[in-house]
């Protein structure tokens, strides 16, 4: 089980958190103007990366804040955490 460094609370056990899937999938501003294909892309299609993934977590049993995590899904090593709205780290 991981230790996740919540950007608001610090290092906590994984069991305090819930994962929220791939990050930076922005909800379309004008959904009605999308084709069914484009809408499906937003709704269902995922990169599902093996390797370094940007993803969302929420500190459910803590501050209840959503934030982003950079994690290598091949070995579960967390590389970085950053708040919602912050720029993802490039390295």
């Amino acid at each position: 089980m991981f230790v996740i460094n919540c950007p608001y609370c610090g290092e906590r056990e994984q069991s305090e958190f819930k994962a929220g899937g791939e990050a930076h999938i922005i909800r379309p501003k004008q959904p009605t103007e999308l084709s069914d294909d484009q809408w499906a892309e937003y709704l269902f299609m995922r990169k599902n990366i093996k390797g370094v993934q940007f993803e969302r977590w929420i500190h459910t049993h803590g501050c209840r804040k959503w934030f982003n995590v950079v994690r290598d899904t091949s070995n579960d090593v967390i590389k970085a955490v950053y708040k919602m709205g912050e720029k993802p780290p490039t390295k």
Binding site: G20, I58, T60, R64, K65, W66, M84, G85
Partner: peptide, 13 residues
């Protein structure tokens, strides 16, 4: 509540 927080914090901050 979880879902509402999700939209509020991540889509409509």
């Amino acid at each position: 509540l979880g879902k509402l927080e999700d939209y509020l914090q991540t889509e409509w901050p």
